[in-house]
């Protein structure tokens, strides 16, 4: 069940140069939101369309979002203060299938948002590979350490953790077949590459896709992706898809 409501900004936290954590007051009805689902957040009254953000955490009647300042809307969002109200629509979309046991989590950049949620909801079961450009873009390493079973950090310039990207770190660690399902969120290229890798090894793999969105509920048909069963809406049929469904994966 999703709804539109005005949420109060409880806290805004600067995590790094471009990463922010936003804490919103939740509503009674959101008893059940799950990792992988997202909300459409109003970023400023001058913008017509809301922006989609994955749930980072849902705890104690609060909703948390982790975002990276990318363009006009996220810039505006970062200027809002505690006590301000923003309109939000959600929770939207399909969640990650619940992992039965240990799982591999792969996150690139802001993709850590939905992956954190998955790790937190399944504490101590996730083998996390988290990559970013450089040390400054790796956020909340301490919290991630706590919620994951094993944490591997990768930076492209080698300023923190292993040098290279997170997928390379994953592949070099598991030369054989890791007997675990894979959950991934991040840049499209990374998602397509990990999908092919997992399909090749016959492992279940779930990826979180992004596309420009207007309605968030499946009405405008702006957020489609090519699947083996034809076009699907990322907002409604996704954003989580099984790697095997996606053409190009």
């Amino acid at each position: 069940m999703h709804r539109l409501f005005k949420a109060r900004i409880v806290q805004t936290t600067v995590l790094s140069g471009s990463y922010r954590l936003l804490t919103l007051s939740s509503e009674e009805y959101i008893r059940h939101c799950e990792a992988g689902q997202f909300f459409m957040l109003q970023t400023g009254s001058e913008f017509l369309l809301k922006r989609p953000f994955s749930i980072f955490s849902h705890r104690g009647g609060l909703l948390y979002f982790l975002y990276c300042i990318r363009g006009k809307g996220t810039k505006r969002l970062s200027e809002l203060r505690e006590g301000d109200f923003i309109e939000v629509l959600g929770p939207l979309g399909k969640a990650y299938p619940k992992p039965a046991g240990d799982f591999i989590a792969l996150a690139g950049g802001s993709g850590i948002a939905s992956i954190y949620c998955l790790l937190e909801d399944n504490k101590g079961k996730g083998h996390l590979f988290y990559g970013a450009k450089e040390k400054g873009d790796i956020v909340l390493a301490d919290s991630l350490e706590k919620v994951s079973k094993v944490l591997t950090i990768a930076t492209e310039d080698g300023s923190l953790g292993v040098k290279g990207n997170a997928l390379e770190a994953l592949c070099s660690k598991y030369q054989g077949d890791p007997p675990m399902p894979i959950y991934a969120c991040g840049p499209k290229q990374m998602l397509m590459a990990v999908s092919r890798w997992a399909l090749d090894k016959g492992l279940p793999c779930y990826i979180s896709l992004e596309e420009h969105m207007a309605c968030g509920v499946g009405a405008c048909l702006s957020c489609v992706v090519e699947t083996r069963e034809g076009l699907k809406g990322i907002c409604k049929d996704g954003p989580i898809f099984s790697a095997g469904e996606i053409i190009g994966a």
């Binding site: 913008f47 017509l48 369309l49 596309e211 420009h212 207007a214 048909l221 702006s222 957020c223 489609v224």
Partner: peptide
Amino acid sequence: GNPTPRIAETASGMLNAI
């Protein structure tokens, strides 16, 4: 329909090419 991106926000409006 068309390839994505199919929408873009503009000042007080949006463009669509669904």
